[in-house]
Amino acid sequence: MNIGDKVRLTHGIEQGVITRILQGNIVEVEIEDGFKIPVQRSELSVVSSVEAQVFKAPEPNRFEPQRQQEWGTQRTSGPEIVANKGIYMAFVVVNDRELSLHLVNNTDWDLPFMLSVGTDPHHKGLASGTLKPKTTLKVQDFLVKEFEEWGTFVFQAFYYRLAFMSLREPLIKKIKFRANTFFNNKQKAPILAKDAYVYQLDAEESKAARPLKIEPEKIIEKMFDTQVNETKVNLPKPSPSVDLHIEVLTKDFLSMSNTQMLNLQLETFEKQFEAAIANGMDEITFIHGIGNGVLRTELHKKLSKHKNVKFFEDTQKEKFGYGATKIKIK
């Protein structure tokens, strides 16, 4: 008996293919449902290639042992091979005002899922159900001018197959898009085969966590690309003065903790400041109020380390009582 021989268990009905020769007169056999089992040579008999002709029965479908496949690759001919990676959010350009969000499952897994969006602790459900293998699902359209108010997307899914399988950890992904990376990530969306702003939900964490370099010139060039037949998507230009008072940013501030309110204010500051850089603004003012000075301190700490800041200063004492900071942008 050699590797590759088709064999039958002497005291059973199982058939398979020898995949390894083990010690102690034992061989490893991969049976037709994908399991590999150790069997004594004496318990096996080789299936002859002329057996079907002798018994005048149609020859059974040829069975080949499964081979390991790299994650993210496509199915090939022959026995089923599982593609484990390839789950995406794809924002397809509808026009210069709207983007259409699609979920893409380019794996061989059924994905019971839920997608929501919002700001902790308040989230709104957008879609739920089961994403079948190699399928897409349109969720809804989003306005580009409201990009800064989209909030945090949360995608949760389980991996499921109607077969014997190794259990996988559920996928939970939180995404808060930033203008300087979102609009610089246009490519062909898998399965949809359309140009879209694509984000892979099951990317390797080491790659996803890689620090991103902000290059305003390239962002502007990408946003205002004038290639023939390509639709432009323009990120709204922020106001010269941005009010960071919590009652202006959300109606739900009464149910939020101090930490949650501060985080929302800082996130708004970062997004508006990035948008100002991307739009080539010379300066922008953030109204943070006086209060206990925590928000002002955090803003000044971030600005002191930012490479695109020429200088910043307290401003408009008469109007804001030093409750505002003006930033000169390089």
Rank of each mutant, 00 (worst) to 15 (best):
G4W: 12
T10D: 04
E14C: 06
G16N: 03
I18H: 08
T19M: 03
E32S: 13
F35V: 02
I37Y: 03
R41I: 04
V47E: 05
P60W: 02
T73P: 10
Q74R: 13
P79C: 01
K85L: 03
V93I: 15
H102F: 15
L103H: 03
N105A: 01
W109I: 00
L111W: 05
F113P: 01
L115G: 01
P121C: 06
D141P: 06
F147A: 06
E148Q: 12
E148I: 04
R161I: 00
I175Y: 14
K176Y: 05
Q187S: 15
K188Q: 15
I191Y: 14
A196W: 12
Y197Q: 09
S206D: 09
R210A: 09
E217G: 01
K218L: 09
I219M: 12
E221F: 08
T226A: 12
N229H: 05
N234A: 09
S241N: 11
L244N: 04
L244W: 15
V248T: 13
L262W: 01
E267Y: 13
K271N: 09
E274Q: 07
A275V: 02
A275S: 11
A278S: 02
N279F: 08
M281I: 07
G293M: 10
K301I: 02
K302R: 15
V309R: 02
F312L: 11
Q316E: 07
K317V: 05
K319C: 07
K330C: 05
